[in-house]
Design a protein around this nucleic acid. Structure first.
Length: 249
DNA sequence: AATGTTCCCAACCGCGAGAGT
DNA sequence: GACTCTCGCGGTTGGGAACAT
């Protein structure tokens, strides 16, 4: 039996195992040499005393090339808020729309900066009534009802190509796009939006439901000069509750 | 200066999905 | 079909910095 005093005298081992720079270097070198994947063997082969999950997380959230660190721009913040309003806590999907940002980073940013500000308008993508595991089940099953999903993973890179004949409007779009996601690289058979005047193409490599939501978001954000009605009819969304309203530009 | 409190965020955990056998 | 393994997701934890008293 241990007395309280004795327990207190023993310095507790830190529960968090922060990555050291030398470990980062080993992991980075290993992945640059062998490539990503099969994380279970990474720790064995690289000599790191870390689990595969830990290695994966460290690479994905910190060491991966093109990771954008530092403060969120106003545009990024705005996009997070809007996406969260539409998608709820689906951080990986939101992160997919913010190149260089990780789901963990966005989740943390929301929890520390934005959730308080937007507490009044707590809105989730499904009607949650039980614990989070139940919630996840609901999200997954609701998605499968909506349509087939190519993959459960988030889009690593989402790309939007905007080709505009009119210089002025192109500048409008580009100025908004600056700092958020200038180039999209999507390839799917899902709603392809090609407005007559704009020759803009939205192609998404993701769940159909999300595709629709994205389309709303982007139509609303980019303001393609459509009225809400025009946009709705273009996108054939009569069954979707999130109709675009109002006029743009 | 010392102590207490709050905030931030990297890392951990448990779970489900999908692939392979 | 049952089982195992790997991967990715979202929620939570806890160390430490920043701030307040």
């Amino acid at each position: 039996m241990e007395s309280k005093g004795l327990v207190k005298a023993v310095k507790p081992q830190p529960k968090k195992n922060l990555w050291k720079p030398e470990e980062d270097l080993v992991l980075k070198t290993y992945i640059e040499t062998h490539g990503e994947g099969n994380w279970a063997t990474v720790s064995k082969n690289s000599g790191l005393k870390r689990g595969g999950k830990s290695c994966r997380l460290r690479w994905k959230n910190y060491l991966r090339p093109n990771i954008k660190r530092g403060e969120m721009s106003e545009q990024e913040e705005d996009l997070i808020i809007r996406m969260h309003k539409l998608l709820g806590n689906r951080w990986s999907l939101i992160a997919g729309r913010l190149p260089g940002r990780t789901d963990n980073e966005i989740k943390n940013y929301w929890n520390t900066h934005l959730s308080k500000r937007h507490n009044g308008s707590k809105r989730k993508s499904v009607d949650y009534t039980s614990n989070h595991h139940e919630q996840k089940k609901k999200i997954r099953s609701s998605n499968s009802e909506i349509g087939p999903s190519k993959s459960s993973t988030c889009i690593e890179e989402t790309t939007l190509v905007v080709r505009n004949e009119e210089e002025e409007d192109r500048n409008n779009i580009n100025s908004w796009m600056d700092g958020i996601h200038r180039s999209f690289n999507c390839d799917t058979d899902y709603p392809t939006l090609v407005p007559e005047n704009y020759n803009a193409t939205f192609l998404f490599d993701d769940e159909p439901f999300i595709t629709y939501l994205d389309s709303f978001l982007l139509v609303e954000e980019l303001g393609f000069g459509w009225s809400g009605e025009e946009a709705n009819s273009l996108m054939q969304v009569e069954s979707c509750p999130n109709h675009v309203t109002g006029d743009f530009y």
